[in-house]
């Protein structure tokens, strides 16, 4: 315990400084606990854009790349394992994903998406490409061939919580929502969904495609409604 004479102005100043110091230690520790426990990824836990990892990765910062792998590796691995069951292939794809992350990190824009979404998008695309290779289908365009990647989005996905997003989509027809759930939540392929729902594969494909387009419209309307700038 620190005893001070509160009648003295200097003591007030000392107490104030000590309180600030205590708060700094206390709250910075809570944040670091959250990060360690994985509740909040380091890059998305702090409001300042200077805390994002990808701009540092783009500049060749090795330690940022290590933190990027530590923070997002488990997420990437889960996305890959949803689509690739062979461990060797999954590991190779995971390596390819982080190679691509390194290569196009400079294209990340925090005004468009969250860091985890940007990396998740690369992971999704690489895994889908792997599946397409197995099915002898041509690969899709690379992300670095999309020059408008830095164009601000009208949908402002960076500011919407993922649970909130699913709530917005409750306005979709129930059969579309069911297909969304089977595809995005359970990770089923179109064939598996067709077998489970007894719908023709073409119908599953069309409904998912149109549902995604409709979801984008709903999100735009939601953003307009709450006054998010275009």
């Amino acid at each position: 315990m620190i005893l001070v004479d509160t009648a003295d102005g200097k003591s007030h100043l000392l107490i104030s400084l000590l309180m600030h110091f205590r708060n700094f230690i206390l709250f910075s520790n809570i944040r670091s606990f959250e990060i360690v426990l994985g509740i909040v990824p380091p890059s998305e836990s702090q409001g300042s854009p200077t805390t994002y990892l990808l701009p540092l990765v783009a500049k060749g910062d090795e330690s940022a790349m290590r933190r990027c792998i530590d923070s997002y590796g488990p997420l990437v691995w889960s996305i890959v394992c949803r689509r690739i069951s062979e461990r060797v292939d999954a590991e190779e794809t995971c390596q390819e994903i982080f190679t691509e992350v390194w290569r196009i990190a400079g294209r990340f824009d925090s005004k468009i998406s969250k860091e985890s979404t940007f990396i998740g998008m690369i992971a999704r695309r690489r895994s889908i490409d792997w599946q397409r290779k197995q099915n002898r289908l041509p690969a899709l365009a690379n992300l670095d061939s999309l020059p408008e990647l830095s164009t601000p989005s009208t949908n402002n996905l960076h500011s919407i919580d993922r649970s909130e997003l699913w709530n917005i989509l409750k306005e979709l027809p129930s059969d579309t929502l069911n297909l969304f759930s089977l595809h995005f939540e359970k990770g089923l392929t179109h064939d598996e969904i067709a077998r489970q729902t007894k719908l023709p594969i073409g119908t599953v494909k069309t409904k998912l495609r149109r549902g995604l387009i409709e979801a984008r419209k709903l999100l735009k309307e939601f953003n307009h409604g709450r006054g998010v700038a275009k």
């Binding site: 889960s78 998740g120 999309l146 020059p147 989005s153 993922r162 997003l165 995005f184 387009i213 984008r216």
Partner: peptide
């Protein structure tokens, strides 16, 4: 050439992905 749809699909999937 928008990547909006792709980001949206990723967000929808990430809600249900448990990092391992």
């Amino acid at each position: 050439h928008s990547i909006e749809l792709e980001l949206l699909a990723t967000e929808l999937e990430l809600k249900h992905v448990q990092p391992c």
